[in-house]
Amino acid sequence: MSERIAARSLNNPWRVAGHYFFLVLLALICLTPIWVMISTSLKDQITIFDGKPIWFFFVPTIENYQDVMGAGKFDKYLWNSIIVATVSTFLTLLLGGLCAYSLARAEFKGRRFVANATLLVRMVPPAVLAVPAFSMVLAFNLRSDLMVLIFFYTALNLPFAIWLLFGFYKQIPVELEEAAIVDGASPLQVFFKVLLPLMKSGYAVAGIFTFRIAWNEFVLALLLTGRNTRTLPVAVSGYLTDTGVEWGRIMAMGTLIVIPPLLFTFFAARQIIAGMTAGAVKG
């Protein structure tokens, strides 16, 4: 809509009110299930199994959190999740950054092929990885080794990270690097001293997406971890038993799992949206 029409219509208080009405309605639709989880995690068994939804006015209890966090190996699973997500994010940014830099800047034989192949392997479904990953782990006897998960998460995340960082590198003028090279800087110096400072926001976006995937991933984690190497998403699925679903504990653990992604959302929404739209809008 042209700016003049937009300006005119925004002067109409009814239209503004309608606009906000829809925005609030959509926001409530997005938030309600998340609030259901958080509020349920703070209710006791009796309140939950009463079956009558109580939105706000219940007596909150932290017993679900105490149960979940006190149970056996919670600390270990939390630690596993943190290690797997941070290490694979670090590796993805390091390797992906170098690769994207090269693809964006250097002319070399095979460049286009690597660029296209990277985009193609991005689409490999996790279900396809399941059996081969399982058989690799059997063959090398690596079951219950966190390194395996870290490796596969890095592989899964690299294509998107390379794709995203490629776009960010393209936006930096080449002249900056050429000047550094003329001054006698090596490629590594150019990369770390000239480009990296300018790439902060690019790496932030790629890092958030990578961390989120690694933190949330479930299928490979379910297959490739053992009693001591479970991550939180695998651990929470263990509370779904045939005999009885302990909703309070499940929601408490779900809430704990969702904390890092929610923090990212609130502190870096703009970057996340940039990353989401980069593929479609700029392409």
Binding site: P233, G254, T265, M276
Partner: peptide, 14 residues
């Protein structure tokens, strides 16, 4: 963007 950020496992549970 919150629904997109929540872990799929947690979405399934909710």
């Amino acid at each position: 963007i919150l629904p997109l950020m929540v872990s799929p496992v947690v979405v399934g549970l909710i």
